[in-house]
Write a protein that binds this DNA or RNA. Sequence first.
DNA 1: GCCGGAAGTGATACACTGTAACAAAGCCGC
DNA 2: GCGGCTTTGTTACAGTGTATCACTTCCGGC
Lengths: 171, 171
Amino acid sequence: MSAAGHSHDHAHDHAHGHSCKAEPAAILARAEELCRERAVQFTALRREVLDAVVASEKPPGAYDIAERLSRPGRRVAPVSVYRALDFLMELGLVHRIASRNAFVPCAHAHGASENVVFLICRTCGGIDETTSPEVESGLGKTLKRAGFTPAHSILEVEGDCGACRDKARRA
Amino acid sequence: MSAAGHSHDHAHDHAHGHSCKAEPAAILARAEELCRERAVQFTALRREVLDAVVASEKPPGAYDIAERLSRPGRRVAPVSVYRALDFLMELGLVHRIASRNAFVPCAHAHGASENVVFLICRTCGGIDETTSPEVESGLGKTLKRAGFTPAHSILEVEGDCGACRDKARRA
DNA sequence: GCCGGAAGTGATACACTGTAACAAAGCCGC
DNA sequence: GCGGCTTTGTTACAGTGTATCACTTCCGGC
Ligand SMILES: [Zn+2]
Ligand SMILES: [Zn+2]
Ligand SMILES: [Zn+2]
Ligand SMILES: [Zn+2]
């Protein structure tokens, strides 16, 4: 999945559907801003956990993060990671992928109530995030028909991303 | 939703949004038919696990089922339950709810590729199942736009079912 | 600067969820 | 019945997430 935006900031208009890793600097900035707004602490541990999620090649599990942050002389227990992840999810900076027990940085800065679609590539393991007005409205109709009041929803699609499909075709 | 048809088959047209337990007899019959078709064994254990899933008040976890099936003198280990559940899911008789680690009987007899929407009531804990052509087509468009080839997807909505909402309103 | 409450972290233990490996039992076609 | 396959039992273990409590850090008020 592609890394969006380089230092010289080329035109990156996202007509492509493939995942663009959130720019580490951008998401960090967003984190700091959000924490200032809400008057909560963006502590070192929280920053490190966010960094780990952003920097990981594949969406890591909580234990992966704990291991990555631990060194001889400093052990970060999974429970600390979970707390930081809860915090980051509360702020909408990180999402949990229920079907994988993994965590991804939010790539969209969408509102909390807005539905997102996670595209999980079973070949490369990458997870892309997109929004879908069509799904949103269709789901709204369906829920209304069912008399169900939604609080939040998860939509995770497993399959093959464009890059992996192309690679397979060339092979 | 809905279990159509009781013994005296009253009009049960399901304008209501709340979960209607699948008729135990019907799903059992379907299981036997499917197993005959595919020439696989519908063993006692598999039947008991299916029964347990159908009969449970709330969607049970695998360990709940194991406990329910165990008695003094006969212990059913979780691993056996998982195997039976895998079997039943393969046949499309049971679904796993990723956001809850719970299992529900299929209430629709839909095809394997067809998308379903799970409606999870956070008040009563009931889980209803419905299909949504709108979502289906909307999601198709979105995936195409993203260049993503889907294999299968999960869509789980948490909120309040009609019954619980009414109950709350009257209170 | 100091104090006191609130928030965050460390550490341990534990509960819950799921899988691997191998042996024993049951089924089925020959 | 024999031989191969499927299913189940049993044990052990890996992976995921939470409860508890003590300790530290932060922050606002004095
Ligand atoms: Zn997001
Ligand atoms: Zn891929
Ligand atoms: Zn179903
Ligand atoms: Zn309800």
